[in-house]
Design a binder for these strands. Structure first.
Lengths: 157, 157
DNA sequence: GTAATATTTATCGTGTGCGATTTAATTGCG
DNA sequence: CGCAATTAAATCGCACACGATAAATATTAC
C-alpha cells in the first residue's frame, strides 16, 4: 500500500493542491449556506420576504428602533448593503426610517404595525427549519457554535 | 430560579420565537460563508479572481473539459449563474467554451494554457486559508463533514 | 470659534445567485 | 419517418454583497 493511499483525509485536506471544490471547507460553507436559503424560500414567499429581509426583520423583532450602524454590526453588513435592503422593506411598509434626534447622521429603523404583525406570521418558521434539518436541537446548537468559532477565528472585524 | 432561566441553549434554539440572528444556525452559516470569502479576497486579488471564479477553476484543475451541466452539479449552480461566470473567465483568457461534438446542446469548458498556469500561482492558497483558521487539519475536516451532513439533510437536489 | 478630523449613511459600479422563460438540439414513441 | 416531450444552455430581471467614494453631520484641536 502506497504512502498516498494511507494518508488520512485530514492530511489530504491540507496537502493536496488543489482540492476539488467538494472537498474544500469553504465550499461546504458556501453551498450549505445557499441550500439553507433555498430551504427558507418557500416559507418566506407567503410573507413576500427574501432571506436577508427576514434576517433584518428578525433583528428588529428582537430589538426595535436601532440605527443602521447597530443593525450592521449585528448582521455583519455595511451601509452599502443595508441601505437598499432597508429601503425595500420601507417600500413594503414594514419599517420606517427616521433621522435620529440628536445626531442627524444616524438613521433609526423602526418597525411599523405591519412589520410587527409579520412576526406572528413568521413564528412557525424556526420550527419548520429545525424539522427540515432532521437534527436534534442539541446537535443544531453545537454545530452553530462550531461554525461561529470558525467565523471568529477568521474575524478581522 | 425560573423555568426560563434554566433552559439549555439547545432548548432555547428551538423554542424562542423569533431568535435574534446571532443565535440562528442559518445566520452562522450565512455570516461565516461571507467571512470566508473575505478571507480569500486578498489571496485571490493578485490573480485577478473572484471567489466563485476560483471555485470554478478549482473544479477544472481537478478535471478539465467538462460541460456546463457537469460543473453545475459539482458546484451546485445553475446555468443562469454559470454561463455569465464562465464567460467572464473566458474574457480573461483562462478558459475556452466549445460546443460538444456529438451533442450540440452541450458546452464544454476547457482550460487554456493561461488557465492551467494559474494553478501554480494559486497553489499556496489552501495552506494560507488553513493557517488563518488556526484549526488543526483534523478539526477542519470534521467540521467540513458536519456541515456537508447538514447540507445533505436539507438537500432537495 | 473655526479648521481639521472622524463618523454615519448613501451612492455607484461590478459580480454573483436564482426564478422564469426562451432557444436550440436530441430523444422517444407512434 | 414525424413530431411531441425532454434536455442543455442562454437570456432577462431582481436582490443582494461589497469596494470605492461621496455627502452630511459631529467631534476635536487649537
Amino acid at each position: 500500500m502506497s504512502m498516498l493511499a494511507i494518508k488520512s483525509r485530514a492530511t489530504y485536506l491540507t496537502e493536496m493542491t488543489p482540492l476539488p471544490p467538494p472537498d474544500m471547507l469553504c465550499f461546504a460553507l458556501y453551498s450549505t449556506a445557499h441550500r439553507m436559503q433555498q430551504t427558507y424560500k418557500p416559507l418566506l414567499a407567503p410573507l413576500g420576504l427574501t432571506y436577508p429581509q427576514y434576517l433584518l426583520l428578525s433583528a428588529l423583532w428582537s430589538e426595535d428602533a436601532r440605527t443602521v450602524g447597530a443593525l450592521g454590526r449585528e448582521l455583519q453588513l455595511e451601509s452599502n448593503t443595508l441601505t437598499p435592503l432597508i429601503k425595500r422593506l420601507e417600500s413594503k411598509g414594514l419599517v420606517q426610517r427616521t433621522r435620529d434626534t440628536g445626531d442627524d447622521r444616524q438613521v433609526r429603523v423602526t418597525l411599523t404595525d405591519s412589520g410587527r404583525a409579520l412576526q406572528a406570521e413568521a413564528a412557525h418558521i424556526p420550527d419548520c427549519i429545525a424539522r427540515e434539518t432532521g437534527m436534534a436541537p442539541d446537535d443544531l446548537t453545537r454545530l452553530r457554535d462550531e461554525i461561529l468559532a470558525l467565523r471568529n477565528r477568521l474575524s478581522s472585524t
